[in-house]
């Protein structure tokens, strides 16, 4: 029998080792898997390379992981924001490495990794500092740059509902990077607000097929926790 549902967030993240590359879902706080990250902070893994769109917002989730000094390098598109104080402090102190990528290239590179592609040619970034040194090619009269896939050891994502096979549906704009990060990581771990029986998710609306997900944890949603 396949049962990917784990008893706790702590169990789900227990084998994440020092130096791992981890994709973390979310756009700002929407879709940020706070409870998996709290468990990861407790677990103690360090020298992590993190792939996320931002570099932490406020004091929870990725911001907390950075505050605790666990992140050696971050690959993201938009680190600087009004509430990115924990990243800003580490960055200005020279304690965290930043690799900046245009947001669409970040998404395409993650998707390419999940899809088993060797690389992609993208027009985004051509002629800019963010593609300096990349191989270029003219395709149908448009200049493109070569970008390589982004793989990860683990993906930590948030979804709305999941079943024991790992099928997932999301909630509103919290979907963002979840589906492609699940594809790109060797081990994708989802925190869901609710687990359901096989067959309860309409197969026509499943967003992430279970094959892309290795572990699920049911946690009270942020909405419920706030209530």
């Amino acid at each position: 029998m396949i049962n990917k549902i784990m008893a706790s967030a702590a169990e789900a993240v227990s084998d994440i080792g020092d130096g791992s590359t981890i994709m973390i879902g979310g756009f700002g706080a929407a879709g940020m898997p706070d409870q998996l990250i709290d468990a990861l902070i407790d677990q103690g893994a360090k020298d992590l390379t993190v792939i996320n769109n931002n570099a932490g917002n406020g004091d929870r989730g990725l911001a907390a992981l950075i505050r605790e000094g666990r992140v050696r390098k971050i690959i993201c598109s938009f680190p600087r924001q009004s509430d990115s104080q924990h990243f800003d402090a580490r960055y200005r102190a020279g304690q965290i490495e930043l690799e900046l990528a245009p947001q669409g290239n970040l998404a395409a590179r993650i998707q390419a990794a999940g899809a088993g592609l060797g690389a992609i040619f993208t027009p985004t970034g051509y002629g800019t500092d963010l593609a300096r040194g990349n191989e270029v090619r003219e395709i149908d009269g448009v200049m493109h740059v070569l970008e390589y896939p982004l793989h990860a050891d683990f993906a930590l994502i948030q979804a709305f509902k999941g079943d024991r096979w790992g099928n997932l549906v999301y909630r509103k704009a919290a979907r963002n990077f979840g589906p492609i990060m699940a594809m790109a990581a060797r081990c994708a771990i989802a925190e869901v607000s609710e687990t359901v029986e096989l067959g309860d998710l309409d197969p026509e609306v499943v967003v992430t097929p279970g094959v892309f997900v290795q572990r699920l944890v049911c946690v009270p949603s942020a909405l419920e926790a706030a209530a």
Partner: peptide, 16 residues
Amino acid sequence: PDAIPAVGGAMDLAVG
């Protein structure tokens, strides 16, 4: 030199 760069989706929109 002291600015923290952030690009977001601007480069994708500009070309696409």
